[in-house]
């Protein structure tokens, strides 16, 4: 007897890179191109894992360890992540703090690896990444805090499981605000367009991309996979709020949430195709706006 929660983790591990493929296909659709195959991210990762790596002589231990910790944190984070009504394999009171901590740990190690190269350029990217996440994390914490406060649950699984009965039904505006804040944080944390352009390789504009420039081969493959896991965690969490299908059967709930996750990715692609990147000075304003929306949701729920 395989429980739905274990399958949820496996689905996350297997399907995570697919989200990037969906985003790229939606962007191609908007631009009128046929686009790369849906499974291209898998091929990229497989190709990179087979390649050899080049290490600069200035790098130390941390350079190689960073991407591995990034993936490890993502995998552990997946075990805490509920898929809609189906509980996560690991759920205890306060586990949402651990999930946020794991995401922070992954970022911290990637940043350290970037600084380890000794390149001023990567240092600049690292500094931007940290500056943005310092604003995105309070927003995320407030959004999840609103969910937890509304549902009176201690664990993320219980909070997301009760999102329809305890958040949408009594106070729809609060649910919409939480979803909006989570969506903004998703775009920021995963270096998507209003904050960072994943396609750009222009020195002064890229943020996340610049931190991983020196990684090559398997290390870069791990960076890509870790990024995909992170995108999956955020999208599944957002889908858990946006798709409040709670029909009692964990399997159906999980399937609905996975479909919701794909829709979130498609929505991200649509945002990316229709919006321009924000000027750097506007980014903190948008993130503060997200934090304010989440705080408003905290005040709204009783």
């Amino acid at each position: 007897m395989v429980s739905a929660s274990i399958v949820g983790v496996l689905a996350g591990l297997i399907l995570a890179p697919l989200l990037g493929g969906i985003i790229n296909r939606v962007k191609a659709l908007f631009a009128g191109r046929s686009g790369q195959p849906l499974l291209q991210p898998y091929r990229d990762i497989a190709k990179l894992l087979r390649k050899g790596a080049v290490f600069s002589t200035t790098t130390g231990e941390m350079f190689g360890v960073g991407p591995a910790i990034g993936v490890a944190a993502g995998v552990v984070g997946l075990t805490l992540l509920p898929l809609g009504g189906s509980r996560a394999p690991v759920a205890f009171s306060g586990d949402f703090l651990l999930l946020l901590g794991l995401l922070a740990l992954a970022r911290f190690c990637i940043v350290l690896a970037a600084l380890d190269t000794g390149s001023a350029f990567e240092g600049m990217g690292a500094s931007r990444e940290v500056a943005f996440s310092a604003l995105a994390e309070p927003a995320m914490l407030l959004a999840v805090g609103a969910l937890v406060r509304a549902t009176d649950a201690q664990s993320l699984s219980a909070a997301v499981g009760a999102v329809w009965k305890q958040v949408w039904q009594p106070s729809m505006p609060a649910a919409v605000l939480v979803a909006a804040a989570l969506a903004v944080v998703l775009l920021c944390e995963n270096a998507r367009i209003p904050f960072d352009d994943p396609n750009t390789h222009l020195e002064l504009t890229m943020i996340h991309e610049v931190m991983v420039l020196d990684h090559s081969g398997p290390d870069f493959g791990l960076v890509l996979y870790g990024g995909a896991l992170k995108l999956w965690i955020f999208s599944a969490l957002l889908a858990g709020v946006l798709v409040p299908v709670r029909c009692g059967s964990p399997w159906l709930d999980a399937v609905a949430t996975v479909i919701g996750t794909f829709c979130v990715a498609a929505g991200g692609g649509a945002v990316e195709s229709t919006m321009a990147r924000l000027r750097l000075v506007r980014v903190p304003q948008l993130l503060v706006g997200a934090a304010v929306m989440a705080a408003l949701a905290v005040l709204l729920v009783r």
């Binding site: 106070s171 729809m172 505006p173 605000l177 304003q285 503060v288 706006g289 304010v292 408003l296 709204l300």
Partner: peptide, 16 residues
């Protein structure tokens, strides 16, 4: 409630 929340958001937008 949605109208009231929109009012609050409009206020915050005015401030920003």
């Amino acid at each position: 409630d949605p109208i009231l929340v929109t009012l609050v958001l409009v206020n915050l937008l005015l401030l920003g």
